[in-house]
Amino acid sequence: MNELEIKELWQTTNEKLEESFVINRKNTEDITRITVHNLLGSMKPIKYFALLVGILWVGIGGIFLSSIYLNSFSEANKFFLFSASIQVGLTAMALFTYLYQLITIYQVDITDPIIRTQEQLARLKTSTLWVTRILFLQLPVWTTFWWNETMLTDWSILQWIVTLFFTLSFTLIAIWLFFNIKYENRRKKWFQLIFSGKEWTPLMKSMELLEQVEEYKD
Rank of each mutant, 00 (worst) to 15 (best):
24 N>I: 10
26 K>S: 10
26 K>L: 12
26 K>C: 08
26 K>G: 08
26 K>H: 11
26 K>W: 10
26 K>T: 12
26 K>V: 09
27 N>G: 11
27 N>C: 12
27 N>Q: 14
27 N>E: 15
28 T>Y: 13
28 T>I: 11
29 E>M: 12
29 E>Q: 13
30 D>I: 15
30 D>S: 15
30 D>Q: 15
33 R>M: 14
33 R>S: 09
33 R>H: 09
34 I>A: 14
35 T>G: 10
35 T>V: 15
35 T>Y: 13
36 V>Y: 15
36 V>W: 13
36 V>D: 13
37 H>Q: 13
38 N>K: 15
38 N>S: 15
38 N>C: 15
39 L>H: 10
39 L>A: 04
42 S>V: 09
43 M>W: 08
43 M>T: 10
43 M>E: 08
44 K>M: 11
44 K>S: 04
44 K>E: 08
45 P>L: 05
45 P>M: 05
45 P>Q: 06
46 I>K: 05
46 I>C: 06
46 I>P: 05
46 I>A: 07
47 K>H: 11
47 K>G: 09
47 K>P: 02
48 Y>N: 09
48 Y>F: 11
49 F>S: 07
50 A>H: 12
50 A>W: 12
51 L>S: 08
52 L>F: 10
53 V>S: 14
53 V>R: 10
55 I>Q: 04
55 I>V: 11
56 L>P: 03
57 W>A: 13
58 V>M: 04
59 G>Q: 07
60 I>T: 06
61 G>N: 09
61 G>Y: 07
61 G>L: 09
61 G>I: 07
63 I>L: 06
63 I>M: 05
63 I>Y: 04
64 F>I: 00
64 F>G: 01
65 L>F: 02
65 L>E: 03
66 S>M: 08
66 S>A: 07
67 S>F: 02
69 Y>L: 07
69 Y>G: 04
70 L>E: 03
70 L>T: 06
70 L>Q: 05
70 L>N: 04
71 N>W: 06
72 S>P: 01
73 F>N: 00
73 F>E: 01
73 F>M: 02
73 F>T: 01
74 S>C: 02
76 A>T: 01
76 A>S: 04
77 N>D: 00
77 N>V: 00
78 K>R: 00
78 K>T: 00
78 K>S: 00
79 F>N: 03
79 F>D: 01
81 L>Y: 01
81 L>N: 01
81 L>A: 01
82 F>Y: 01
83 S>F: 03
83 S>R: 02
83 S>L: 03
83 S>D: 02
83 S>V: 04
85 S>F: 01
86 I>K: 01
87 Q>T: 14
88 V>C: 06
88 V>N: 03
88 V>H: 04
89 G>I: 02
91 T>F: 05
91 T>E: 08
91 T>Y: 06
91 T>A: 09
92 A>E: 05
92 A>T: 06
93 M>F: 03
93 M>Q: 03
94 A>L: 08
94 A>R: 06
94 A>W: 09
95 L>C: 08
95 L>N: 06
96 F>M: 07
96 F>A: 06
96 F>I: 06
97 T>N: 13
97 T>A: 14
98 Y>P: 10
98 Y>I: 14
